[in-house]
Protein backbone atom coordinates (compact mmCIF):
# COMPACT_ATOMS: atom_id res chain seq x y z
CA UNK A 1 0.00 0.00 0.00
CA UNK A 2 1.17 3.55 -0.73
CA UNK A 3 -0.19 7.03 -0.14
CA UNK A 4 -1.40 7.42 -3.74
CA UNK A 5 -3.44 4.23 -3.65
CA UNK A 6 -4.77 5.01 -0.15
CA UNK A 7 -5.92 8.51 -1.13
CA UNK A 8 -7.27 7.02 -4.36
CA UNK A 9 -9.35 4.46 -2.48
CA UNK A 10 -10.58 7.15 -0.07
CA UNK A 11 -11.53 9.33 -3.04
CA UNK A 12 -13.45 6.42 -4.52
CA UNK A 13 -15.15 5.85 -1.18
CA UNK A 14 -15.99 9.57 -0.95
CA UNK A 15 -17.49 9.55 -4.44
CA UNK A 16 -19.82 6.68 -3.57
CA UNK A 17 -20.81 8.29 -0.26
CA UNK A 18 -21.44 11.64 -1.99
CA UNK A 19 -23.73 9.98 -4.52
CA UNK A 20 -25.69 8.13 -1.83
CA UNK A 21 -25.91 11.36 0.22
CA UNK A 22 -27.18 13.31 -2.79
CA UNK A 23 -29.88 10.74 -3.49
CA UNK A 24 -30.88 10.34 0.13
CA UNK A 25 -30.99 14.06 0.99
CA UNK A 26 -32.69 15.22 -2.19
CA UNK A 27 -34.82 12.03 -2.38
CA UNK A 28 -33.96 12.15 -6.04
CA UNK A 29 -31.56 10.70 -8.61
CA UNK A 30 -32.09 13.51 -11.11
CA UNK A 31 -29.06 14.04 -13.31
CA UNK A 32 -27.56 10.68 -12.43
CA UNK A 33 -27.11 8.02 -15.09
CA UNK A 34 -28.60 4.75 -13.87
CA UNK A 35 -26.79 3.02 -16.72
CA UNK A 36 -23.40 4.05 -15.39
CA UNK A 37 -24.41 2.82 -11.96
CA UNK A 38 -25.39 -0.55 -13.45
CA UNK A 39 -21.99 -0.72 -15.12
CA UNK A 40 -20.22 0.08 -11.84
CA UNK A 41 -22.16 -2.69 -10.09
CA UNK A 42 -21.09 -5.04 -12.90
CA UNK A 43 -17.48 -3.86 -12.57
CA UNK A 44 -17.39 -4.74 -8.87
CA UNK A 45 -19.30 -8.01 -9.29
CA UNK A 46 -16.84 -9.29 -11.91
CA UNK A 47 -13.71 -7.94 -10.21
CA UNK A 48 -14.29 -9.09 -6.66
CA UNK A 49 -15.16 -12.72 -7.33
CA UNK A 50 -12.02 -13.63 -5.38
CA UNK A 51 -13.51 -11.97 -2.30
CA UNK A 52 -13.96 -15.34 -0.57
CA UNK A 53 -11.09 -17.23 -2.16
CA UNK A 54 -8.12 -14.84 -1.97
CA UNK A 55 -7.63 -12.97 1.31
CA UNK A 56 -5.28 -10.00 0.82
CA UNK A 57 -5.96 -7.94 3.96
CA UNK A 58 -8.82 -6.86 6.19
CA UNK A 59 -8.75 -3.50 4.43
CA UNK A 60 -8.97 -5.13 0.98
CA UNK A 61 -11.87 -7.40 1.93
CA UNK A 62 -13.76 -4.66 3.78
CA UNK A 63 -13.47 -2.24 0.87
CA UNK A 64 -14.55 -4.89 -1.61
CA UNK A 65 -17.64 -5.65 0.46
CA UNK A 66 -18.37 -1.93 0.77
CA UNK A 67 -18.04 -1.29 -2.97
CA UNK A 68 -20.19 -4.27 -3.93
CA UNK A 69 -22.92 -3.46 -1.40
CA UNK A 70 -23.06 0.30 -2.05
CA UNK A 71 -23.17 -0.18 -5.82
CA UNK A 72 -26.13 -2.52 -5.43
CA UNK A 73 -27.86 -0.09 -3.04
CA UNK A 74 -27.31 2.73 -5.54
CA UNK A 75 -28.88 0.72 -8.37
CA UNK A 76 -31.76 -0.20 -6.06
CA UNK A 77 -32.35 3.44 -5.12
CA UNK A 78 -32.26 4.55 -8.74
CA UNK A 79 -34.49 1.90 -10.26
CA UNK A 80 -36.85 1.24 -7.39
CA UNK A 81 -37.05 3.64 -4.47
CA UNK A 82 -36.47 6.89 -6.36
CA UNK A 83 -37.50 5.55 -9.74
CA UNK A 84 -39.98 8.40 -10.24
CA UNK A 85 -37.08 10.87 -10.30
CA UNK A 86 -34.93 8.83 -12.68
CA UNK A 87 -34.42 10.81 -15.90
CA UNK A 88 -34.69 7.93 -18.39
CA UNK A 89 -35.23 10.30 -21.32
CA UNK A 90 -31.70 11.65 -21.00
CA UNK A 91 -30.05 8.41 -19.89
CA UNK A 92 -30.06 6.82 -23.32
CA UNK A 93 -26.52 5.56 -23.89
CA UNK A 94 -26.72 2.04 -25.34
CA UNK A 95 -24.99 -0.24 -22.80
CA UNK A 96 -24.51 -2.97 -25.39
CA UNK A 97 -22.18 -0.62 -27.26
CA UNK A 98 -19.89 -0.81 -24.24
CA UNK A 99 -20.41 -4.29 -22.77
CA UNK A 100 -20.07 -6.24 -26.03
CA UNK A 101 -16.79 -4.70 -27.28
CA UNK A 102 -15.33 -4.74 -23.77
CA UNK A 103 -16.34 -8.39 -23.38
CA UNK A 104 -14.75 -9.25 -26.72
CA UNK A 105 -11.56 -7.39 -25.88
CA UNK A 106 -11.32 -9.15 -22.51
CA UNK A 107 -11.38 -12.46 -24.37
CA UNK A 108 -8.67 -11.37 -26.78
CA UNK A 109 -6.34 -9.34 -24.59
CA UNK A 110 -5.71 -10.70 -21.09
CA UNK A 111 -2.90 -12.01 -18.91
CA UNK A 112 -4.11 -15.59 -19.06
CA UNK A 113 -7.10 -17.36 -20.47
CA UNK A 114 -8.83 -18.46 -17.28
CA UNK A 115 -12.42 -17.55 -16.30
CA UNK A 116 -11.42 -15.49 -13.25
CA UNK A 117 -8.71 -13.67 -15.20
CA UNK A 118 -11.00 -12.90 -18.15
CA UNK A 119 -13.71 -11.61 -15.79
CA UNK A 120 -11.14 -9.46 -13.97
CA UNK A 121 -9.92 -8.11 -17.34
CA UNK A 122 -13.52 -7.48 -18.41
CA UNK A 123 -14.02 -5.54 -15.17
CA UNK A 124 -10.91 -3.42 -15.72
CA UNK A 125 -11.84 -2.57 -19.31
CA UNK A 126 -15.47 -1.93 -18.39
CA UNK A 127 -14.57 0.42 -15.56
CA UNK A 128 -12.55 2.57 -17.96
CA UNK A 129 -15.67 3.35 -20.02
CA UNK A 130 -18.38 2.97 -17.34
CA UNK A 131 -18.66 6.73 -16.85
CA UNK A 132 -19.56 7.36 -20.51
CA UNK A 133 -23.34 7.11 -20.03
CA UNK A 134 -23.08 9.67 -17.20
CA UNK A 135 -20.96 12.07 -19.25
CA UNK A 136 -23.25 11.54 -22.23
CA UNK A 137 -26.31 12.32 -20.08
CA UNK A 138 -24.70 15.51 -18.77
CA UNK A 139 -23.88 16.63 -22.30
CA UNK A 140 -27.54 16.13 -23.19
CA UNK A 141 -28.93 17.95 -20.14
CA UNK A 142 -26.17 20.56 -20.47
CA UNK A 143 -25.64 20.88 -16.73
CA UNK A 144 -25.15 19.01 -13.45
CA UNK A 145 -25.97 19.66 -9.81
CA UNK A 146 -23.00 20.82 -7.78
CA UNK A 147 -23.05 17.71 -5.55
CA UNK A 148 -23.05 15.58 -8.70
CA UNK A 149 -19.99 17.42 -9.99
CA UNK A 150 -18.21 16.78 -6.66
CA UNK A 151 -19.15 13.11 -7.01
CA UNK A 152 -17.64 12.99 -10.50
CA UNK A 153 -14.51 14.84 -9.42
CA UNK A 154 -13.88 12.35 -6.60
CA UNK A 155 -14.65 9.43 -8.91
CA UNK A 156 -12.33 10.67 -11.66
CA UNK A 157 -9.56 11.53 -9.18
CA UNK A 158 -9.48 8.01 -7.74
CA UNK A 159 -8.16 6.41 -10.93
CA UNK A 160 -5.84 9.36 -11.62
CA UNK A 161 -4.32 8.69 -8.18
CA UNK A 162 -4.07 5.01 -9.07
CA UNK A 163 -1.88 5.99 -12.03
CA UNK A 164 0.48 7.68 -9.56
CA UNK A 165 0.26 4.50 -7.45
CA UNK A 166 1.35 2.42 -10.47
CA UNK A 167 4.30 4.75 -11.14
CA UNK A 168 5.29 4.41 -7.47
CA UNK A 169 4.94 0.61 -7.52
CA UNK A 170 6.89 0.33 -10.77
CA UNK A 171 9.88 2.18 -9.37
CA UNK A 172 9.79 0.88 -5.80
CA UNK A 173 8.30 -2.61 -6.14
CA UNK A 174 8.92 -3.48 -9.78
CA UNK A 175 5.17 -4.06 -10.05
CA UNK A 176 3.61 -3.39 -13.46
CA UNK A 177 0.27 -4.41 -14.93
CA UNK A 178 -0.07 -3.10 -18.49
CA UNK A 179 -3.79 -3.89 -18.73
CA UNK A 180 -4.65 -1.96 -15.56
CA UNK A 181 -2.37 0.95 -16.52
CA UNK A 182 -3.70 1.37 -20.07
CA UNK A 183 -7.33 1.08 -18.94
CA UNK A 184 -6.66 3.46 -16.04
CA UNK A 185 -5.18 6.05 -18.41
CA UNK A 186 -8.15 5.78 -20.79
CA UNK A 187 -10.51 6.12 -17.84
CA UNK A 188 -8.75 9.22 -16.52
CA UNK A 189 -8.50 10.82 -19.97
CA UNK A 190 -12.29 10.53 -20.35
CA UNK A 191 -12.62 12.82 -17.32
CA UNK A 192 -10.27 15.52 -18.62
CA UNK A 193 -13.00 17.64 -20.17
CA UNK A 194 -15.03 17.41 -16.97
CA UNK A 195 -11.96 18.13 -14.79
CA UNK A 196 -11.37 21.32 -16.79
CA UNK A 197 -14.98 22.46 -16.35
CA UNK A 198 -14.96 21.49 -12.67
CA UNK A 199 -11.80 23.43 -11.87
CA UNK A 200 -12.69 26.50 -13.95
CA UNK A 201 -16.36 26.65 -12.91
CA UNK A 202 -17.41 24.69 -9.85
CA UNK A 203 -14.39 25.73 -7.78
CA UNK A 204 -15.30 29.33 -8.59
CA UNK A 205 -18.78 28.83 -7.21
CA UNK A 206 -20.46 28.66 -10.57
CA UNK A 207 -22.85 25.93 -11.65
CA UNK A 208 -21.42 23.25 -13.91
CA UNK A 209 -22.83 23.81 -17.37
CA UNK A 210 -21.61 21.85 -20.36
CA UNK A 211 -21.68 23.15 -23.90
CA UNK A 212 -24.83 21.23 -24.81
Amino acid sequence: MNIFRLIGDMSHLLAIVLLLLKMWKTRSCAGISGKSQILFALVFATRYLDLFTAFISAYNSTMKLFFISTSLVTVYLMYFKFRATYDANHDTFRLEFLVVPVGGLAFLVNHNFSPLEILWTFSIYLESVAILPQLFMMSKTGEAETITSHYLFALGSYRALYILNWVFRYYFEGFFDLIAVVAGCVQTILYCDFFYLYITKVLKGKKLSLPA
Partner: peptide
Protein backbone atom coordinates in the same frame (compact mmCIF):
# COMPACT_ATOMS: atom_id res chain seq x y z
CA UNK B 1 0.43 -17.29 -20.98
CA UNK B 2 2.66 -15.25 -18.76
CA UNK B 3 1.84 -15.23 -15.06
CA UNK B 4 -0.69 -12.50 -14.27
CA UNK B 5 0.58 -9.73 -11.99
CA UNK B 6 -0.66 -10.15 -8.42
CA UNK B 7 -4.13 -8.77 -7.77
CA UNK B 8 -3.80 -6.94 -4.49
CA UNK B 9 -5.51 -3.73 -5.60
CA UNK B 10 -9.16 -2.78 -5.46
Amino acid sequence: DDAAPEKDEL
